[in-house]
Design a protein around this nucleic acid. Structure first.
Lengths: 207, 207, 207, 207
DNA sequence: AATGAATGAGTCTTCATTCAT
DNA sequence: CATGAATGAAGACTCATTCAT
């Protein structure tokens, strides 16, 4: 095999992988991992069943592939660290908007993998490392810095960060469950959340 | 033929159902609905495969049975409405403690059903009605009453309630994912949450 | 066990057997032997599944029981031998009427056993001996006697008798298949048959 | 992708279907539909169980497939209508010979499907339409035409035709039941039948 | 003698995976 | 590389039969 073809071949291979993963994502999201058959995925991707196995070792490998793609979409970091110089509440709203639009964009992928993640030990660990821990760590660093700066009251940082992260995860679940008020109020959510988390529920002190 | 045996028979039937559901819960929680075989469940329950089908129409019916038992454990109501006469922050802490202990108790059940709930339309709707909507409605009523009383600032009630509910759902997921800080800090969580939600993250005003 | 109870006990046992066989006949006729479950039969008979096994060795034994009862209904003999002194054509009509009313009465039993008879070697032989061969033999004797007497033209007796016997068997099948003209013309059939078999289809010679 | 392969592929598919149906026919005929297992059929066909399901939707669909093949073998029509110009008795003998050779050829298929046809409503209707009604209709037309021409005495056409059709069906059953005289006299049957039906059993008038 | 809960062997059917073309 | 027919292991579910009460 001539090495000159490598870049082109890789392009093709990459494109074919994406094509299959897109199909797998949509079928998994709709029917769940186990109810989805390789034949359905092949049909949705417009290839034969055999072709899938030229690009992925087995059905579970498709889930891994989806998780990798999802990780690429979820890059979060510069936004958080840059935030130290902004007003905290504005920053909250901004970061929440960012998170929720991302959720929107990747909902199908998450719906495709999450149920299986909850049940499959290997995927669970991978998911925890790749998504939860990464974000949690960033949030912890941010929170500690802001507390240091006096922009945020001293709190139990690990637990608070878990609470915030849980909130996003839970919103995802509620959306998957089809909660209508959440769906229609989705765009107002960042505002509601930043107020809730920054100001709390207690009545205005000045009143 | 004697009618006197009916209550005894019903006792036995109920006990056998519980015995099977316990087994199913534990096997589903460990391996997931699809990877769990009826033979495994039968072994875990100490009965034969056939016996399962004397008490449940099919495998999916076991999930329904688990959901029903879970619903019995999750009764929430009097606690909430009685709370109107208490200090809001204390009430928050109390209600959170209550919720989190319940979560603890029913984590295995939830782990057994949730992944399948996310993927199965019928179960999804059932779950949403039976758990999400019921609690959300109670929370909405409570929040509106407290706002009316001036104990809580005016907020977008539906979205705020969704946020709180999401928070609990998300904590569950994080626990299932095996987050260690969450597990070890679980008992401190009610306190952290009530402070977070009532006072917010912003620095003390008097400072 | 006092021997004095024997007759009463036998009465009871006989009655219970009939009760179960009636139920089995009706369920087998409707759903076929394999699709019929012992539970259905028990329900139809108003007894428990276990009771069936106090009276019959197993499910297949129910078929044997039905066949035995059927044999009792099908007694044919005196009518045939007495017929030698009657006008042949009248006798034909009489005997056909007799046969067809019997078919009518035992159709459910036959429908219950025949499909399984065709498929089960043991039943097949039993059925052949008990029904086909017995009647065929009687018919052969009758036909030979009538030929001897010159009331009937010389024919290949074994084959002719098979043809006649086949005709009745086939009518049964057609009725089971639900042929409407046959059902509504059932009462005219004996007349049609006796004319057909005695006079044939050829036009009247005098014409 | 080349369209040239389509006919070849269809050839292969057709051949494989025939291969499986042949096996199913022989196993069903021997053991009956319910006692026959898909594994046995697969073994008899020299394929795996899974392959059966690539060509047939389910086990019952094999019966349908056998019925369709049987229908192809049973084409009857030109023979009957052409018969109007022949001597009736000769024609009878000819048509009976034709029918009985067909029966011979397709006995295994009929033995495979008939017991299940008697018990399965859907198959029953299909069978009645496809075999009984079609032949009965042709016979009725023929008989009416011949009566019109004066070649046959006026009779109740529908019932007479049912009788003739029944005769053939019954002969089939008797053969399945293993009647030896019928088997050994099979070749003489057409002659016997045509005489029986055309001339009847009554003694020669000239005598 | 009657019951019906328990049993578990047996079967159809599905579907991920392989491999010859 | 692509194909899709063939594979066969695996599993949900049924139901005749048993037996303790």
């Amino acid at each position: 095999m001539s090495t000159a073809q490598d870049p082109i071949r890789e392009q093709l291979i990459g494109a074919r992988r994406v094509q299959i993963l897109d199909a797998a994502t949509s079928v998994f999201a709709e029917k769940g991992f186990h109810r989805a058959t390789t034949k359905e995925i092949a049909n949705a991707a417009g290839v034969s069943e055999g072709t899938i196995y030229n690009y992925f070792a087995n059905k579970a490998d498709l889930l891994i592939g989806i998780m990798v793609r999802l990780a690429d979409l979820q890059q979060l970091g510069p936004e958080l660290t840059d935030g130290l110089h902004t007003d905290v509440r504005d920053f909250f709203a901004a970061i929440f908007r960012h998170r929720m639009s991302r959720v929107e964009a990747s909902r199908e992928m998450i719906q495709a993998i999450l149920p299986e993640v909850l049940v499959n030990t290997e995927l669970r660990q991978r998911f925890y490392q790749q998504f939860v821990l990464q974000i949690v760590t960033l949030l912890e660093q941010y929170l500690e810095a802001e507390i240091e700066l006096g922009h945020i009251r001293p709190v139990n940082v690990p637990l608070t960060v878990r609470a915030v992260q849980s909130l996003f995860v839970g919103l995802l679940i509620l959306q998957i469950l089809g909660d209508e008020p959440l769906r229609s109020g989705w765009d107002d959510m960042p505002e509601t959340l930043s107020t809730l988390l920054f100001d709390g529920l207690k009545p205005e002190q000045g009143a």
